[in-house]
């Protein structure tokens, strides 16, 4: 799985790593039980601070996407807890996207088609 980092983006690097790993799990590029690189190796490869990668892994662990232990390092969880709810922050983000689409003249049908496409292929 390829991670694309934009150093000049407003989104912090740890959040970019977290977001792309989440999308990777959702799309099936990262499978349950799959080993993730160590914090040190990934930081060295990306040319970023180890704390940044550590923060991303910590967040993913807290959110229940990965599990870590001293012996095996970080792995994707084989079963991710499905709460069936959209978080408040995601609701706010979705509201922003819908608003921008409406203002730029994107029809509701087109937006729903896009959601269908993303949800359908990535589920």
């Amino acid at each position: 799985m390829i991670i694309r980092i934009n150093e000049l983006s407003d989104i912090p690097i740890y959040m970019q790593i977290r977001n792309q790993i989440v999308m990777g799990i959702s799309s099936g590029e990262l499978e349950g039980g799959e080993q993730l690189p160590t914090v040190r190796a990934l930081a060295m490869e990306m040319g970023i601070n180890t704390m940044t990668v550590s923060k991303a892994y910590q967040l993913l662990k807290t959110e229940g996407y990965i599990m870590t232990d001293r012996k095996n390092g970080a792995r994707i969880r084989t079963s991710i807890k499905q709460q069936g709810i959209i978080s408040d922050s995601n609701k706010t983000e979705l509201k922003r996207i819908v608003s921008e689409c409406r203002l730029s003249g994107v029809s509701k049908a087109d937006l729903l088609n896009l959601i269908d496409e993303f949800y359908g292929t990535e589920s």
């Binding site: 390829i2 991670i3 150093e7 983006s9």
Partner: peptide, 14 residues
């Protein structure tokens, strides 16, 4: 060129 962009393949790291 888009500045500040870098790619990493998780499967080849280390």
């Amino acid at each position: 060129a888009e500045k500040g962009i870098s790619y990493t393949d998780l499967k080849t790291v280390g």
